[in-house]
Amino acid sequence: MKIRQVSVFLENRKGRLYEVCSLLGENNISIRALNVAESDDFGILRMVLDKPEDAEGLLREHNFTANFTDIVAVEVEDRPGGLAEILRVLSENDVNVEYMYGFVEKNEDKALLVFRFEKPDEAIACLAENKIRIVGRQDIIGL
């Protein structure tokens, strides 16, 4: 149920984001979802990839600092109030969201969102209980 997210440390330097993306592209690794968090002088690039295992060695070989975290991808109704509905469930059950971002592509008329939870296992249980669909790794590769 959990998906591996790849995070990369980036200095605020011209062309750095491009270097990561082109490295992945050249090695036929596809980016399914992406988000950049930034501070004054550095940024963190977070990505959901179709082949995270391949990316690990590749990034290290090219001297990028990267790590892996478990995230949860959730299907959201693509209509007004779709996201609010999920956040209400999480809030009512005291599930903390560290951060979240959206997928590039859609699954039919559903939007896909990535959640980084403080406690992913508790969050998954809560979502399942409330009949919210969690997207697995296979679904993502198939997108």
Binding site: F9, S39, I44, R46, T65, R116
Partner: peptide, 15 residues
Amino acid sequence: EVDGKIFSDEIKKLR
């Protein structure tokens, strides 16, 4: 230098 040991996907931890 930020290496794999101290790197985090969360900005606040690095801050």
